[in-house]
Amino acid sequence: MSVKIEHRDKVMTAYLEGEIDHHSARSIREQIDDEAQQSKPQTLLLDFGRVSFMDSSGIGLVMGRFRLMSELGGSLKVVNTPPHIAKVMRLAGMERLNVLEKENGR
């Protein structure tokens, strides 16, 4: 599992790659939170384009970052979710948080 972080204007994008489970979630969380606390972005984009597996630990990861961004006065967006990951997100009712990108979540 790896995370690559990019900043553009006030948007911080975290490109996630690999498998998200309880084992890998901690280091992802720490990397994202460290960066976000420092740069205080207006928007945090979590890009799931290269995530090959995710269980409910990934839902915890998204909800935790949602809370963090609320505390920082910014917002969170989840983009490029592959079909199986979108299925887990839907089951978790993530639509209600209004963080999912509209078009390609099948």
Binding site: R29, S56, L61, M63, V88, A92
Partner: peptide
């Protein structure tokens, strides 16, 4: 950091 969704999944 836990969603409480494991059994639901």
């Amino acid at each position: 950091e836990r969603a409480g969704l494991g059994f639901a999944v």
